[in-house]
Design a protein around this nucleic acid. Structure first.
Lengths: 184, 184, 184, 184
DNA sequence: GATGAATGAGGGTTCATTCAT
DNA sequence: GATGAATGAACCCTCATTCAT
């Protein structure tokens, strides 16, 4: 019999807005990301969006930073699960081929992120940290140059596979990685 | 005594508009690309833009296709100049480290391109051709998997170097490529 | 049988917008003056207003400058019609008591103008010219101090009469003016 | 050890809000006077403003009425200090030239007040009282017409001096007043 | 009593697009 | 063919006001 009260102080709302923003970016691109679409996607009144984020740019930055953190975290988590060099290689293959990082959604968002970062220095900084983290995670098993090579390969194959009509399969990826790591 | 007349029927005008569009995208992102900014950058009357391109989307697509063609062409041209496998490797290094492809401008534009392509199937198709061309050019010297690995590496290192405060230098790049190609 | 065409290049439109702006200011105050109200008052599409005036502030400034010019002109015109000191005095009385300057509309607008000018230096400058013109017009018949006194009197009585439930009549005004001019 | 508690039931708070309102009007005009700015200027929580004043208009009216009362009071007080006609004249000069009434702040606020009053009959009424008070104060020393003339002169010279790059000095003001009062 | 989180109406402004010229 | 004047939809954002706490 209780009427659902107009939710006051909804603690999840801010987070819901950020999540909705990423959904809208994915669907419409930064160019098509508007307060109204975000509000609708978050099922939140229009005024809410500007209430929690002074500026649309604020919100975009927050959303992209969250994306970077999440992606970076997933990458590191997968590698942290490895204890041997061999498991680490398997982890990298998972990251590239699987859904750890290179799912279409994350990739599409990362293009938008890169483009956005190029014009927003604070986001660039976070991306640098992201890359540092990835390399540190790889650095547990590989020397620095190899780590960077693998990191770049994740990026490059990920992008190409997302476009390619015939993506590289796990075996092909393994061949390449083995060459880079010298484990051939 | 003749006053320079407002150029009539400028045949290069269409092309100038396309070039200006890429400049505007580079500067303001797709999100900030407007008819007015394009017209200004092209030094062309506002009406010209909609005259040559029915829709802004038409123009963006045209511009991105040109970008893809040009980039792809530069890539292939550099490799076509090589006659030996060794020269080809040098070419790839040039492409990654030099200004053939991985200059900041092209990279920034390519993020925008990837993001745009993900929502415009016709552009995706062209990008697939682009990748095919790159691999064909590499295929003159390397087996298919190696070609794809190198292609991905170009992409990945290019992106990372554009963000990285300490980009990989030519020597490090050579080490990685040698491992991939088995020429170590 | 001619269908009224969508008027292109209506030369009077810009002026109509300015006039409408003064009407809206009079009716709603600067605080209540909006693009939408102006557009409605001018019977012009909303987009027109920002098309002719980049900024609402631009438009307000233009409108107030026109008001100042018109008012100042009316003042001077009335005095220019005088050829003798006596006629000049009659002119001043007309200005104060009549509709030359001190009609309620102009007065109300002038409050808004003064308030606006205080925060817009360029408008202040124009008002200084306005006062200079008034005094110059009075200067044809009166010494400088008398001119300034009369000018202030016009302002002061005008304001008070617009509020007063029992405004000063022409005779009382004449008495005061005669004292100031020493023609008592 | 006591942390200064958020003041409860601050009796001066209502007054502080009114004072802050005048400050905000002075700084931003009625057009730029908002709850938020007032709350900030008064160092008071946002909710306070609507708590003490149901409507922004209520608050503006209250503030303007206070302004009218204060100004009128200062005017009367200065004249009440006079015991002779001569001292009264000196008082009027003080009022015009000094800071009794014609300081820039009060003048700017009075433009806003006049404009506001023109659209708010209750405020107009108070202004009428204000004028009546001024004239009553002058009436102790001067006949009614002279009183009104002096009152108008205060208004007119005050306004003009606030705009004028070369304001009238005390001597010039005295000359004019002497003519009006017939004490020349 | 007091507060600040929350909202939706409406603000100024930009812009893709149209179309008379 | 080419243009730029013109428009109205939609943009981001501000704000008076409400109301649960």
């Amino acid at each position: 019999m209780t009427v659902e009260p107009r939710r006051r102080n909804d603690p999840a709302r801010r987070q819901r807005i950020v999540d909705a923003t990423l959904i809208v970016i994915e669907r419409h691109g930064v160019a098509g990301t508007t307060h109204r679409r975000i509000a609708e996607a978050a099922a939140v009144p229009l005024g809410s969006v500007t209430y929690y984020f002074v500026t649309l740019e604020d919100l975009l930055t927050t959303a992209f930073l969250q994306l970077a953190t999440t992606s970076s975290g997933a990458f590191a988590a997968r590698l942290d699960a490895a204890t041997t060099r061999c498991e680490a290689i398997e982890g990298v293959i998972d990251i590239i081929a699987g859904s750890v990082w290179a799912d279409p959604r994350t990739l599409l968002l990362s293009y938008e992120l890169y483009a956005y970062a190029a014009r927003h220095p604070d986001v660039t900084t976070v991306m640098q940290h992201w890359m540092d983290n990835s390399r540190a995670a790889l650095g547990r098993f590989f020397d620095p140059v190899t780590a960077r090579a693998l990191d770049a390969l994740v990026e490059g194959i990920g992008i190409h596979n997302s476009i390619d009509t015939a993506p590289l399969d796990r075996d092909a990826i393994r061949v390449i990685i083995d060459r880079i790591t010298g484990d051939a």
